[in-house]
């Protein structure tokens, strides 16, 4: 189950970053640690046939590039923290919106909350500081030219048996 979820999470994230911001991410399969150095963290919760929270940790350099590319700006341009956070929240919204039907199909209905930015000093080990101290249901680390990002999925309970992972 975890391996399938991580494969889907990986595919959706890679496709979203490429289509949304022309950024190419590669799964870092051997790496257990989270991104290091300055980073931003955002989360988005969802309810439906199953519920949970998706968290994204993204290094500052990757978020900077993501924002530039989404806005179509040259690198000399000035961007604000609000724009970076807006870009991160929109990216989270798109990844989550594509992840859920990729997991459960398009016959079911999910409600996705507004993404939110988490405090910078959040404790990230073993999910502490996220929805609770559960182990993630899936976690994928990515390498990009500018740095790293991680996507971490926490599910509340199990996926119902009538949901067949696609």
């Amino acid at each position: 189950m975890r391996a399938k979820l991580e494969k889907i999470l990986s595919q959706v994230t890679i496709e979203t970053l490429e289509k949304l911001a022309f950024m190419f991410a590669f799964t870092n399969e051997g790496e257990e640690s989270y991104p290091t150095g300055p980073m931003s963290v955002a989360s988005v919760s969802f309810t439906g046939p199953f519920s949970g929270t998706l968290v994204m940790m993204i290094s500052t350099e990757v978020l900077q590039e993501l924002t530039f590319n989404m806005l179509g700006l040259e690198e000399e341009a000035e961007i604000t923290e609000d724009q970076r956070y807006d870009a991160l929240k929109e990216t989270m919204n798109i990844i989550c919106g594509n992840l859920l039907p990729a997991i459960a199909g398009d016959e079911v209905v999910f409600n996705i909350d507004v993404p939110r930015i988490l405090p910078k000093d959040i404790e990230v080990k073993k999910g502490a500081g996220f929805p609770d101290e559960r182990e993630p249901s899936a976690r994928v680390n990515f390498d990009l030219d500018e740095g790293q990002c991680s996507l971490i999925l926490f599910l509340n309970g199990r996926i119902p048996e009538d949901i067949v992972l696609l």
Binding site: I94, N98, L100, D106, V109, F110
Partner: peptide
């Protein structure tokens, strides 16, 4: 233009 994935809602 949306992330909506539910066939019924679309």
């Amino acid at each position: 233009i949306s992330t909506e994935g539910s066939k019924a809602r679309i």
